[in-house]
Deep mutational scan, measured.
Amino acid sequence: TLATPAVRRLAMENNIKLSEVVGSGKDGRILKEDILNYLEKQTG
């Protein structure tokens, strides 16, 4: 899974598996926005 260290840390802090997040960046890269959108969906 393609993600920057900052995105990986954000995911780890929120107990998110990067494999569950759909990346919207180039080549499927997971962006910070993708993590935040995933969190919004989870908290509903």
Rank of each mutant, 00 (worst) to 15 (best):
P5N: 10
K17M: 11
N37D: 13
D27N: 08
D27R: 08
S24M: 02
G25K: 03
G44C: 11
N37A: 15
A6E: 12
K32M: 10
G23M: 01
V21S: 02
L18R: 02
D34Q: 00
K41Q: 13
V22S: 12
T1L: 02
I30N: 01
L10E: 04
V7F: 01
N15I: 01
K17T: 10
K32W: 06
G28L: 00
N15E: 10
V22A: 13
K17Q: 12
N14Q: 08
V21K: 02
E33W: 05
E40K: 15
V22G: 10
Q42F: 04
L10P: 03
S24R: 05
E40H: 05
N37E: 12
A6M: 09
K26V: 09
N14W: 08
T43D: 15
I16V: 12
K17L: 09
G25Y: 00
K26L: 08
V22M: 11
K41P: 10
T1A: 07
G28C: 02
A3Y: 09
I30R: 01
E20L: 08
A3K: 04
P5G: 06
R8T: 10
A6L: 07
K41R: 15
P5S: 09
N37Y: 04
N37M: 14
S24E: 03
T1M: 15
R9Q: 14
L2T: 11
L10W: 03
T43E: 15
L2V: 10
N37K: 12
D34P: 04
E40P: 11
A6Y: 08
V7P: 02
E33L: 08
G25A: 04
E33G: 10
Q42C: 12
K41T: 12
I30A: 02
L36P: 06
A6K: 05
K41D: 11
M12V: 06
E33A: 12
E20I: 02
Q42M: 10
Q42Y: 15
T4R: 03
E20W: 08
I30W: 00
I35Q: 06
K32D: 07
N37P: 08
E20Y: 05
L31A: 05
K32Y: 10
N14E: 00
S19R: 10
M12T: 08
V22E: 14
N37L: 12
V22P: 14
E20G: 04
T43A: 13
G28V: 00
L36Q: 13
A3Q: 04
N15D: 08
P5W: 09
V22C: 13
S24V: 00
V21C: 06
K32L: 10
T4N: 11
L18T: 03
R8M: 12
N37V: 10
R29W: 10
S24Q: 05
T43C: 08
G44D: 12
S19Q: 10
I16P: 00
